[in-house]
Amino acid sequence: MIEISHLTHTYPGNRKSPPRTAIDDLSLSIPAGEFCILSGPNGSGKSTLFRILCGMALPSSGTIRIGGHDLFAEPAAARARMSVVFQSPAIDRHLSVAENLRLQATLYGLSGADYKARLGEAVEWTDLRDRLADKVDTLSGGLARQVELAKCLLTRPEIILLDEPTTGLDPNSRRNFIEALQRIQRQRKMTVLMTSHIFSEAEDADRVAIMKGGRLLACDSPQALRARLGHEMVVLQSRRAESLLPRIEADLGIAVRRYGDELRLEETVNGDSLPILERLLGLYRGDIDSIAIKQPALEDVFVHMTGKTAQDIEREQLEIEAP
């Protein structure tokens, strides 16, 4: 359904900065009906890929086919098959919910009885039935997001692209949004490609694609990705993590990875974790602030592959958003 083939995008340089390759020979195929999460640290090329997929930027090279249509040669046909939910709200806050939906319908050539039927369907999936006459200005962040979702559903798209749609929502609204999206996706067998930093959202996806430096590092089911780290790992926190790392590697002969004050022994053999933990406590009790055996989560896979923790990404995001 979405076929990305050998996509490369280079931002042209200028006198102050050299050209920068944001996407580097990326190929990714998302079959019809799949829910795929695209994740990666800031600067990994996700946003550039999203802009290209939306048809808002043209790549340096490569092709994208959407439902069989070449996105660059037949943009209108490709766009007609997909809907997009952007990170920033793309609704007019001066208009009512119904006015926003009607405008969206007009943009996609819907009118009359067809529009009414689709409006009924779109509203059924969301909590907007009693809020159609309300100005968007008066809605909560979660409901405003649902207007975006309703706008998408109105066009009965085969494909939905979402760019971090739950950013800024409280956990409850976030959960409601994702649950509604997953319910609709399953029932309508839509293809969904969603960028996200929130790993709980990725757990229910069919596949998770991880990008770094413009390249695709992995694209697999959450289970398969977790299996790459084995079934257990030992994680310890220490204020002396930097000096502790070479000592552990020398004493235990196990590769250790450091993320700030955190040390991870990821390549432990199943069942070895407890003896390793006991040995670590025996050798370095005074240097260890906390220690645990944990089963790898998607977040751990992400950290392992990109070298960035969720906190790193959040911090970077705040730095980008700060005026």
Partner: peptide
């Protein structure tokens, strides 16, 4: 406000 991008991606 982000509204323009929703118009630009429409067919």
């Amino acid at each position: 406000a982000g509204f323009l991008q929703s118009v630009l991606v429409a067919p």
